[in-house]
Write a protein that binds this DNA or RNA. Structure first.
Lengths: 244, 244
DNA sequence: CCCCTTATTGTCAGTTCGACATTAAGGGGG
DNA sequence: CCCCCTTAATGTCGAACTGACAATAAGGGG
């Protein structure tokens, strides 16, 4: 931040975009909204919007949009800033700098009735990034960055628990890893590894849960903020890249 | 991003701040500049400034400030966006949203002659965060976030090589880890571990380097973008700290 | 040639990993 | 009530890895 009293710096519009990720029926989904107005009318876009006024905090604006556009309560949801996207020309209406937030929610069964936009829908992440979906602005890149961030943070933070409800089974947790990473994991080894990490998960009473088969123990998120040791993603079996 | 044609969203000043980290004499340093004008005149601040005009890209602005205020060429330097800092009131002059960038540079021996500000100086990170240094705006938090980011990325990305010159020895690399993490590592085990990670470092010819003692092999950064397996930070034996 | 310094290679027991088998604990149907 | 089906949890085993520490290698200086 520097000097200058004579020169007036340019003023820029500031917006907030939300990448809301969840698991639905063991599939990794992102929330997209069909735009009802130009520009990009009819295309899919991330929920978001401009700051209400010049005094609104950007994090508060993210919480507000979360409520308005996704009908979600930010309390006890994982929300972290992803970054600022401000390439000139990203919005045809003019210079807009958008601050993107990454939100992780436990799998909501309902299709989330958007209050505002034409239609809100959970879209499988794979599909959203495949190119078969028309995404507005630079939202394709934002979603890609968010997914990459989530995949990486799964390795060395307890982020996976944010995809789960208050209490969960180890199999639930494994589903998160498998869906987000797009791999299959061995339940026996996963069970062992997860329990060894101090502070990752802790037993939630002798409680259990009903399904067919043997009842599973319930856990809740532990106090750890980092996983030591980390859960490393399996190496991609191919070797089309990487060198030694 | 939403609708509305009648309502005009607020315009906000956008700035760029740089956290430039390096190693000097095996000590982890950050570049700070003494402010010559109000607000926070006389305090230390990160290099940075407002966008030049409404068309300037924020990344381009970061590169420009890097040149203007630190006399550094962004080419072949590690630069990544850290995040947006936009709390109302962070700048007493009005609403300013600042996009912070994290830059890693090989240890420059010279004290970096700032072109603009009153004085630029490399300050040990520990000192900058200790509270004994008056930092302007919310720069204390920004530096803290940057350092935390660097410490974490050292574990699972080849970021450490960004602290080194084009070619380096394994002992150089170890110095980076030790200085940034603030720990001591066993050279023998470090040597083994680093070499096992595919694509982390690759031999730079049979070249060597002069010092006292046996000449060391030179390496350069490899093609890997992630470390598999990661280099995990040693557990702190005590548990007096940690927090996020 | 001896000594000092730093680099690189070994050694070794304890731990962890991945692959896979086995046992445990419900619920349903006959 | 017993057999069977399903999912959960524990166990086994050789290979690989880890941390602690010893031993050897390769210059430079005196």
């Amino acid at each position: 931040m520097t000097d200058d009293d004579t020169w007036t710096p340019p003023e820029i519009l500031v917006a907030v975009d939300l990448v809301i990720l969840t698991l639905r029926a063991s599939v990794f989904h992102v929330l997209l909204i069909e735009r009802g107005i130009e520009p990009f009318k009819g295309a899919q876009a991330l929920p978001g919007g401009f700051l209400n006024n010049a005094e609104e905090d950007i994090y508060a604006a993210a919480l507000r949009e979360l409520r308005e556009e996704a009908d979600l309560d930010g309390t006890d949801l994982h929300i972290e800033q992803l970054g600022a996207y401000g390439t000139p020309g990203r919005d045809p209406r003019g210079r807009v700098l958008s601050v993107a937030y990454l939100t992780i929610a436990p799998g909501l069964p309902e299709p989330v009735a958007g209050t505002d936009a034409s239609g809100a829908a959970w879209v499988p992440v794979e599909q959203a990034l495949s190119g078969s979906v028309q995404l507005a602005f630079d939202h394709w890149k934002i979603v890609g960055d968010a997914v990459e961030r989530a995949r990486t943070k799964l390795e060395h933070t307890p982020l996976a628990t944010a995809f789960c409800t208050k209490t969960f089974t180890i199999a639930d947790l494994q589903e998160v890893y498998e869906a987000v990473w797009g791999v299959d994991l061995d339940p026996r080894n996963f069970y062992r590894k997860v329990q060894r990490v101090p502070g990752f998960i802790e037993s939630a009473g002798a409680d259990r849960r009903m399904t067919t088969g043997r009842p599973a123990r319930l856990f809740r998120a532990g106090p750890a903020t980092a996983l030591h040791p980390p859960l490393t993603r399996p190496e991609p079996s191919n070797d089309s890249e990487e060198g030694r």
